[in-house]
């Protein structure tokens, strides 16, 4: 069994927009959705369509996985990378990457993105957060006023 799996040399991932990525098996280990697909196959090369992930996003995820799978990189270098990785992203990128992480079933990357988004909304107003997540309030003005009054101290 193990010998057969290790015979897979290259995995081809095809993003929603048709862009193609060739990666080594150790890079996709964290992507459980992809890994379980590979585990069911008995081939030397596999090609996997990912219709829910865009090319740009997939490129970033692969870059992240490569950095974190590397044994040569120090813990500090990885932390530095994580910091820069999040810094260059726009809010929408973060939300899309979180969705992709969920679709690909990547536990630690999902938590990493969730933390990055949490840091952005920390200490922000209700209005900012609604705008950020494109949420329309479904409270009546009276209900909202009541709830704000109950938690008045938290708004100080």
């Amino acid at each position: 069994m193990a010998a057969e799996k290790s015979s897979i040399k290259i995995i081809t991932l095809i993003a929603a927009d048709g862009s193609v990525f060739e990666v080594e098996p150790n890079i996709v280990k964290e992507m459980k959705t992809v890994q379980s697909y590979i585990d069911e196959l008995d081939q030397n090369t596999v090609s996997i369509p990912l219709p829910n992930v865009f090319g740009n996003d997939l490129a970033m995820i692969i870059e992240y996985c490569k950095k974190h799978a590397s044994e040569e990189e120090t813990k500090e270098a990885k932390e530095e990378f994580d910091f820069e990785f999040v810094k260059r992203m726009k809010s929408d990128d973060k939300l899309r990457l979180l969705q992709a992480a969920s679709y690909l079933n990547m536990e630690s990357f999902l938590q990493f993105m969730a933390k990055a988004i949490a840091a952005e909304i920390e200490n922000q107003s209700v209005e900012f957060v609604r705008d950020y997540f494109q949420i329309e309030s479904d409270f009546t003005p009276e209900e909202e006023a009541e709830l704000r009054k109950e938690n008045e101290w938290a708004f100080k």
Partner: peptide, 18 residues
């Protein structure tokens, strides 16, 4: 997942989001 990393005080305000 996101809210589980947000501090309590912010969460108490964000109850009003929806």
């Amino acid at each position: 997942e996101i809210l589980s990393f947000v501090p309590v005080k912010t969460l108490m305000q964000l109850k009003c989001v929806c």
